[in-house]
Amino acid sequence: MEWKTRARGLRAGAERRFPVLTELTARLVDGNLLDAGTRLAAQAFLATIPLLFALAAFAPAAVREQLLESLRAVFGLTGPADAELERVFDRTTAAEVRETTGAVGVLIALVSATSFSRAMARVCERAWGLPKAGTRIAAWRWAVWLLALVLVLLLQAPIRDGFGAGGWLGLPLYFLVSTGVWLWTQHLLLAKRVPWLPLLPGALLGGTATTVLGVTARFYMPGALNRALAEYGALGLVLTLLSWLIVVCAALTFAFTIGAVLAREPALARRLGTDRAARPAATAPDGGAGRT
């Protein structure tokens, strides 16, 4: 029993000296972050499909080509998977989609895609323990964020290539753009309830996570997508892409939550000017903090 007493003493001492570790551990264990990341990934996937087909059907040829190159850059597509993607953006397929769905159907699909924006807003709000923003305040932010995300996706190929300079510039540029995107994402979807600087730790962690996963995807995803397509057909592609989205969205969920905890750590809070009033909400009955 002596070792248990010593262990409790060491834990109590660590909590006194490093209170941020206690809060961080509690948030990671009790916050159901993996579930939140999985839900975010599901919404991302449901938003991506209608947006992809809408752009393939109605966007100008130059935009379709740019999106095709950017998707190739993101996933490093080769072989059968690349051929499937080309088929989506083929002129004949685009014409068929326009005839089948029409502009009204695409508009409905785009509106429903804002569910991804709402899910991302909930992730940011839970990270900071803030209540859900009113619909009148948040609705236009959901649409703006979604459109900005599409623009960032369109620019992935030139960004990763360093606008022609090569990977030596593309990689740090991709990290800077990712960090800026996640900083702006939190500020926009939180409806400016948290200042810019306290959001920086989460943005840096999110930028690091997406940069590492972006590099990894170029090596892992081409083979995984081609194997899945060969073994299971289109269903294999869906499952592989969804699995990748779960990893990315879970990483972002953890990054924003850890960033919010670090921003309240006394030493960082003084430098970042963290608002002491923006504290996590009381623990909900199910163990989640600030559920919205």
Score class of each variant (00 low, 15 high):
residue 173 L to C: 12
residue 197 L to H: 01
residue 225 L to G: 08
residue 168 W to L: 14
residue 160 R to P: 03
residue 210 T to C: 04
residue 229 L to Q: 01
residue 187 H to S: 09
residue 218 R to S: 01
residue 232 Y to V: 08
residue 214 G to C: 01
residue 212 V to P: 01
residue 142 W to S: 11
residue 196 W to E: 02
residue 180 G to K: 10
residue 208 T to D: 00
residue 234 A to M: 15
residue 180 G to E: 01
residue 151 L to P: 07
residue 151 L to M: 12
residue 136 R to D: 09
residue 179 T to D: 00
residue 196 W to R: 14
residue 149 L to C: 07
residue 156 Q to E: 15
residue 226 N to Y: 01
residue 172 P to F: 07
residue 186 Q to I: 12
residue 138 A to N: 10
residue 225 L to N: 08
residue 164 G to N: 11
residue 173 L to Q: 06
residue 156 Q to N: 14
residue 161 D to N: 10
residue 176 L to V: 15
residue 145 W to C: 11
residue 192 K to T: 05
residue 178 S to I: 05
residue 231 E to R: 15
residue 170 G to H: 09
residue 169 L to S: 02
residue 170 G to T: 13
residue 144 V to F: 15
residue 218 R to I: 09
residue 193 R to D: 06
residue 164 G to H: 12
residue 194 V to N: 02
residue 174 Y to H: 13
residue 205 L to D: 00
residue 213 L to E: 09
residue 141 R to H: 06
residue 197 L to I: 07
residue 169 L to P: 04
residue 206 G to I: 03
residue 232 Y to D: 14
residue 219 F to V: 11
residue 174 Y to W: 14
residue 218 R to G: 09
residue 197 L to T: 10
residue 200 L to C: 02
residue 212 V to Y: 09
residue 234 A to G: 13
residue 200 L to G: 01
residue 208 T to K: 05
residue 205 L to E: 01
residue 162 G to C: 12
residue 187 H to P: 03
residue 150 V to H: 07
residue 212 V to C: 12
residue 193 R to S: 14
residue 210 T to F: 07
residue 178 S to E: 04
residue 154 L to V: 15
residue 158 P to G: 05
residue 148 A to I: 10
residue 163 F to K: 09
residue 180 G to A: 06
residue 216 T to I: 10
residue 195 P to T: 03
residue 200 L to Y: 00
residue 141 R to K: 12
residue 230 A to L: 12
residue 169 L to C: 09
residue 175 F to N: 06
residue 193 R to I: 03
residue 143 A to F: 13
residue 226 N to W: 06
residue 211 T to A: 09
residue 141 R to W: 07
residue 234 A to K: 14
residue 165 A to P: 08
residue 206 G to W: 01
residue 187 H to E: 04
residue 168 W to M: 09
residue 195 P to V: 10
residue 191 A to Y: 09
residue 207 G to T: 03
residue 181 V to M: 12
residue 173 L to D: 05
residue 220 Y to V: 13
residue 213 L to S: 05
residue 222 P to Q: 07
residue 213 L to G: 06
residue 155 L to V: 11
residue 226 N to V: 11
residue 193 R to T: 03
residue 192 K to Q: 15
residue 171 L to S: 05
residue 174 Y to I: 04
residue 177 V to A: 12
residue 207 G to K: 07
residue 190 L to R: 03
residue 221 M to I: 00
residue 152 V to E: 10
residue 142 W to P: 06
residue 235 L to A: 11
residue 138 A to F: 07
residue 197 L to G: 00
residue 222 P to S: 02
residue 188 L to H: 06
residue 167 G to Y: 05
residue 140 W to A: 12
residue 231 E to L: 15
residue 205 L to Q: 02
residue 153 L to K: 07
residue 179 T to I: 01
residue 233 G to V: 13
residue 198 P to W: 01
residue 168 W to P: 06
residue 154 L to T: 15
residue 166 G to S: 04
residue 213 L to R: 06
residue 206 G to R: 00
residue 198 P to D: 11
residue 168 W to I: 14
residue 204 L to F: 02
residue 228 A to M: 05
residue 216 T to P: 00
residue 166 G to M: 08
residue 229 L to P: 02
residue 199 L to K: 00
residue 151 L to D: 08
residue 175 F to L: 14
residue 202 G to S: 05
residue 201 P to M: 08
residue 213 L to P: 04
residue 189 L to R: 08
residue 136 R to T: 12
residue 209 A to E: 00
residue 144 V to N: 03
residue 169 L to Q: 07
residue 178 S to P: 05
residue 166 G to D: 05
residue 209 A to I: 07
